[in-house]
Nucleic acid binder design. Sequence first.
DNA 1: AGGCGGATCCCC
DNA 2: GGGATCCGCCTT
Length: 205
Amino acid sequence: MNSKLDRKFYNRDTIEVAKDLLGKLLVYQVDNKKLIGKIVETEAYMGPIDKAAHSYGGKRTPRVEVMYGKPGVAYIYLIYGMYNCFNVVTREEGRPEAVLVRALEPVEGLDEMALNRFKKPYNELNKKQIKNLTNGPGKLCMAFNIDRSLNKEDLCENKIFIKKQEFEEKFDIIHSKRIGIDYAEEAKDYLWRFYIKGNEYVSVK
DNA sequence: AGGCGGATCCCC
DNA sequence: GGGATCCGCCTT
C-alpha cells in the first residue's frame, strides 16, 4: 500500500494542508540511509495577502518563484545566513502559498540525525541535545542534512516525500501565532501556526 | 555597487 | 540579550 501524499493533497487550502501535515512522516533517503521524522509543528503562509509571506503583494523574484509553481514541491531557502527552512508548496500553479515545517519528532535514522547535528551517535547525546535534535525549522534541516540543493524537489517522487503513518494516532491541534514574524504588522497575530498538543518536539510551547 | 534585514540558533 | 553569517532584494 502506498501511503505517500499525492499532488491532490497539497493542492488544497493551505491552512487545511498545514493542519493535515501534523502526524505525517517526512521521509528522506540518501544513499542507503533513510531518515524519518513525524511532523509535529507547521505554519501556513498565505501568499499575496499575507505580510509574513515571501510572496506578499504578489512579489515574484527568483527565490520565491517555486511558490508560484505546482503544489507538492519543496521550497527551501537560507535564513539568517546560516540555516535552511523546509516548506511544501500548496495550491494550484500561480497561487504562491506554502507550509513551513517547523518541527519533527525523530522516528528513524536517529544516529544519522545526531551525527548531522552534534557529530556523535544518538546514545552519546545528553538530554538537552536529544530535545534539540529536530525541534525547530533550522534544526530539523540540519538533522536531515536538508539544504537548498533540495529546493524545487518534487515531494511526489521518491527522494524526499511525506507519507501517512500506518496507524494514525489521535491528537489535539493547538492554533497559535506564527514565530519570528514581528515585522508583519496585523499578520503577526493570525493563528496560522499549528502543533500537536503536548508533543515534546514542538519548538516553542 | 552598496546597504540592510531576515519564517533561526546558540551561548552568555 | 546579543552575535553569527550571507544571500536576496531594494535603493542608489
